[in-house]
Simulated scan of single mutants.
Amino acid sequence: YLAKLSSVGSISEEETCEKLKGLIQRQVQMCKRNLEVMDSVRRGAQLAIEECQYQFRNRRWNCSTLDTLPVFGKVVTQGTREAAFVYAISSAGVAFAVTRACSSGELDKCGCDRTVQGGSPQGFQWSGCSDNIAYGVAFSQSFVDIRERSKGASSNRALMNLHNNEAGRKAILNNMRVECKCHGVSGSCEFKTCWKAMPPFRKVGNVLKEKFDGATEVEQSEIGSTKVLVPKNSQFKPHTDEDLVYLDSSPDFCDHDLKNGVLGTSGRQCNKTSKAIDGCELMCCGRGFHTDEVEVVERCSCKFHWCCSVKCKPCHRVVEIHTCR
């Protein structure tokens, strides 16, 4: 539902909030109270889709989106590790985009993080515009998590979604970095000012993809009167706040199955020489593949001409394209 915001024009009027499909009433109310932030939420949703599709570009499930709700299909309605990744990357996308808008001065409600000031134990001076990640994370918690909390956060699925939402935000928080600028005569570093910056969103995606690969299968348990998620296999060590968790095993994503929202891998390109998941044997699930020869045109024999242009010749070559049956 977050990604669906990307198909709407600028969200600048309260009436627009009512038209955003997939939002629950409390999210619509938040939208109306935070109109200036909603374009950032939309950007975060689009960022999440793009990163998800990049991370899974060579997998059977490649994070395909649909024109209907939910935009990721029925995959996210099941408690699978794919759903865990979608929730985590979406939550992270909102926190990232809102924080970026704060730092760039787009929002009146927030700006740079002014708590990072003074000298540091390493000898440099905190200065510049530190990313206000606290505001971005708080907004993501309020806007994204409200959907699960409104259901009553005691069902298995609500607990799973809330955990993975937080794991997505942790992927940013735990990878904040220090960026610095040197000051001095002729570029010397006599004096250094530094600020805290978010990692590139690609780094966030990489971290969450690793967490996806090592995700923990969980089940609900009770500690006193509190319902919690614990590893299904008691021999596994407990998951941390940074790990992804899931409740149900994933389908193999091989065959077209509309009932479960699986598009299948027929027609997908595969790598004939790879033994990994992007290889034709695994990607095509043993069904075999078609091979077609196509001609591609590339730039070659490029030369620099003074001043200032680069001129290239078009080169034609034939390549083999392999697609699953």
Rank of each mutant, 00 (worst) to 15 (best):
N132C: 09
N132K: 04
N132L: 05
N132V: 10
I133Y: 08
A134Q: 13
A134K: 14
A134P: 00
A134I: 06
Y135T: 09
G136R: 02
G136N: 04
V137P: 05
V137M: 13
F139A: 09
F139M: 09
F139D: 05
S140W: 07
S142D: 13
S142V: 03
S142W: 04
F143A: 03
F143S: 03
F143Q: 03
D145G: 14
D145Q: 10
I146W: 00
I146Q: 05
R147D: 14
E148L: 08
E148T: 10
E148M: 08
S150E: 15
S150F: 12
K151D: 02
G152A: 12
A153P: 13
A153S: 15
A153M: 04
A153Y: 11
S154D: 11
S154C: 03
S154I: 05
S154T: 15
S155F: 09
S155E: 07
S155H: 09
A158L: 01
A158S: 15
A158M: 04
L159G: 02
M160T: 08
M160Q: 07
N161F: 01
N161I: 00
N161Y: 00
N161L: 00
N161H: 03
L162S: 04
L162P: 02
N164A: 10
E166Y: 13
E166G: 01
E166P: 02
